[in-house]
Amino acid sequence: MTIVAQAQFTNLPSGDNKRATVSEGVGITQVSINYSRPGVRGREGHIWGGVVHKGFANLGFGPSKAAPWRAGANENTTITFSTDVKIDGQPLAAGTYGFFVAYDPNESMLIFSKNSSSWGSFYYDPKEDALRVKVKPVTLDKSQEWLRYEFADETPSSATVMLEWEKLAIPFKIDVDLVATQIASFRKELRGTSGFIWQTWHTAASFCEQNNTNLEEALLWSDSATSLGTGGAQSFQAWSTKAGILDSLGRNQEAMAAMKKALPYGNVNELYFYARTLAHLRKGKEAFEIFKMDYDKHPDEFITNAGMARGYSALGDFKKALGYAQKALAQAPDPVNKDRLEKMVKTLQDGKDINS
């Protein structure tokens, strides 16, 4: 009896074309490209327009009679986006796509196909196209033996993908809406186990406050962050963020009430840096009150002496400020703080505000 077994078998890839994956984060979006890497192998000058056929061609196999290049070797080259993106300014939904190139030396066409599971481009069907983008190939200074994909020109919300082989590169730019994708992620994750602790609600609310966006929903998130149920009812961070959101919404009285709730829960550093913000905003009286509260809780410590120096300076009393600055200088815990306090002392001796 003869038994024929069909199974996956681990061996070298066909044609010795190296299998590869490259992945990069663009904002919170993960971009992954899976492909096989053919080599030039002495075919210099015959890759583009030869090994890589121009435009669409009948490959002599499969149903496609007008197939683009598979943008690699062996199996389909695929590209995955974890969120919605834009490719050279055109929208493309999150997902995994077969990636093809209709090469032309002047203007190549990139094709993102909904079919990501077929072998190469033998089964390419234009009806399955999700997006087509035209780009201009770029000449490389140095020949690239093995085809590769690289990420370049990266910013927090964009990156350029470079398909490089022999002496040519085909680039395309990926853009993400950093704020929109982050907020969408918050909405999704807060519905799961992340929503049981105040820190995650606070992180989401704080992101919106800092970016001055989605404030009405952010206020609801801050309600959860400051609730007994999530454990944030005594969090300075949660209450101060809520105060900031209310202030941005123009609800100033409510913002002040929320900040009053925050103050008793602030630690020495939180109160100090909140007071510094007030001083920087030229709210001298309010800043002094917080610096004094911090000092009364933690008297004669380095940071609270420095705070009192800033508080009196904000009120214009440079003489009293100088006394506290000198005390803080004597307590400086490291060279960096010592240098900073020495400059503060000199500024106060010159009769100038150290909060400017």
Results as ranks from 00 to 15, higher is better:
residue 5 A to R: 14
residue 240 S to I: 13
residue 20 A to T: 08
residue 240 S to D: 02
residue 238 A to I: 05
residue 125 D to A: 14
residue 135 V to P: 02
residue 267 N to I: 06
residue 146 W to D: 06
residue 90 Q to S: 15
residue 221 W to T: 09
residue 150 E to A: 15
residue 86 K to A: 06
residue 161 V to G: 00
residue 342 E to K: 15
residue 72 G to Y: 09
residue 333 P to R: 02
residue 230 T to P: 11
residue 226 T to N: 12
residue 138 V to K: 13
residue 312 Y to G: 03
residue 45 G to R: 01
residue 99 F to S: 01
residue 91 P to A: 11
residue 231 G to L: 12
residue 331 Q to W: 02
residue 275 A to F: 08
residue 34 N to L: 06
residue 4 V to E: 11
residue 77 T to Y: 10
residue 322 L to W: 05
residue 307 G to R: 14
residue 52 V to T: 01
residue 151 F to R: 05
residue 319 K to Y: 10
residue 141 D to I: 00
residue 226 T to R: 00
residue 147 L to A: 13
residue 304 T to I: 04
residue 69 W to Q: 07
residue 351 G to A: 05
residue 179 V to T: 15
residue 23 S to R: 10
residue 351 G to E: 03
residue 290 I to S: 08
residue 262 A to C: 15
residue 27 G to H: 00
residue 215 L to P: 04
residue 325 A to K: 05
residue 323 G to K: 15
residue 241 T to H: 02
residue 356 S to H: 07
residue 46 H to Q: 11
residue 270 E to H: 11
residue 1 M to F: 15
residue 36 S to Y: 03
residue 158 S to N: 12
residue 148 R to S: 08
residue 90 Q to R: 14
residue 57 A to L: 09
residue 228 L to S: 10
residue 126 P to L: 08
residue 161 V to P: 00
residue 116 S to V: 10
residue 345 V to N: 01
residue 57 A to E: 02
residue 308 M to V: 06
residue 21 T to A: 04
residue 240 S to C: 08
residue 118 S to F: 03
residue 5 A to T: 09
residue 86 K to S: 09
residue 104 D to L: 01
residue 336 V to G: 04
residue 94 A to M: 12
residue 199 Q to D: 09
residue 115 N to S: 11
residue 22 V to D: 07
residue 351 G to M: 09
residue 48 W to Y: 11
residue 341 L to A: 11
residue 100 F to R: 04
residue 322 L to E: 15
residue 52 V to L: 05
residue 227 S to L: 08
residue 247 D to A: 14
residue 301 E to I: 02
residue 47 I to A: 01
residue 127 K to L: 09
residue 190 L to Y: 08
residue 106 N to M: 13
residue 306 A to V: 04
residue 208 C to E: 01
residue 44 E to M: 08
residue 107 E to V: 12
residue 261 K to W: 10
residue 318 F to I: 03
residue 198 W to Q: 12
residue 232 G to C: 00
residue 47 I to E: 01
residue 26 V to L: 05
residue 278 L to C: 02
